[in-house]
Nucleic acid binder design. Structure first.
Ligand code: SF4
Ligand code: SF4
Lengths: 152, 152
DNA sequence: TGAATATCCGACTTGTTCGGTCCGCATTCA
DNA sequence: TGAATGCGGACCGAACAAGTCGGATATTCA
């Protein structure tokens, strides 16, 4: 319940790692996997998906690898999770085709949809850059005020 | 990924239903299950857990059933979810005993813990009463301003 | 050219969780 | 007593998550 998949987790780690090493033109899946102890083949597939959705750019061949397609500031955690795990819904309904069969009689799906929106907003407000620069962030974000309002 | 279990879902529905019928001294699991089409035996077990954690009061025997143990305003969605699904964590680490084995090298667990806190806060800000009174709520909560601030 | 290094992609296995059912027991009340 | 109800464990099947394997393709370098 309400748990991130490890794949999404790994994806965030990898993106953060790439954001922290802008000097490298490209890093291979194996490089990143070794840096954290993530199964290399699994990470490879995750990075492939991120590439397919446009968050990363890939380059095959020797000295190839992956690099951020956009500035770290413009990549949100929401996008990463969405790319890896698919559409984001906290409820089983609105799950594309096959939701739960009692959707018509259900009286809490609308309020829960708002909650869903709120959480999605939280995720969207977090960028890869935010994850990477946490030490500096501790100083000045104390006053920063993102920003979620839940009006059920 | 980040999906509520149906059990928690059912629990919220049941509690909302109870909140909407304060005139009844007690409603049986079957009554509530029939009202929505939820499998009766499954809902029964859910209500049992909610009773064990103190959110409901039960009474066996004929004309028995369940009733809210506290005012609907003081029961949060977070409590319901926590009662049914156990501790609330979006990451696989901090999962009691067996987390993911790369916890030491992981660099995003701290920021994710903040996100976890934020989402928990959202859930805590929602009461059963809020779910039950949505029609009236639509009018006056437009100005209401709960209230979550995420400083990563 | 050919070897080495990469990405790419689908199929597969394994373990866990979730949704749901079943059955026996305890409690209350008419 | 007996019907209605709560209580609680055991159990099952389906879905899903995590990870593995094998092979195809693309790029670079010697
Ligand atoms: S319809 Fe209601 S019960 Fe079914 S998944 Fe949606 S919110 Fe949950
Ligand atoms: S340690 Fe890092 S990778 Fe492992 S579950 Fe926690 S956040 Fe995810």
């Amino acid at each position: 319940m309400l748990k991130l998949t490890k794949k999404a987790d790994y994806g965030l780690m990898a993106l953060k790692y790439l954001a922290e090493h802008p000097e490298m033109p490209a890093l291979s899946a194996k490089d990143i996997a070794d840096a954290y102890g993530i199964p290399a083949q699994l990470l490879a597939k995750i990075l492939q998906r991120l590439t397919k959705t446009g968050l990363l750019r890939s380059h095959a061949g020797m000295n190839g690898g992956y690099a951020l397609a956009r500035d770290a500031r413009t990549i949100s955690a929401f996008e990463v999770i969405h790319s890896i795990d698919g559409p984001f819904f906290i409820t089983s309904c609105t799950k594309g085709a096959k939701g739960c069969d009692l959707t018509p009689s259900c009286t809490i799906k609308e309020p829960l949809a708002r909650v869903n929106e709120t959480i999605a907003g939280v995720l969207k407000s977090i960028s890869i850059y935010d994850l990477a620069e946490r030490e500096a962030a501790a100083a000045h974000t104390a006053a920063a005020q993102p920003l979620v309002s839940l009006t059920l």
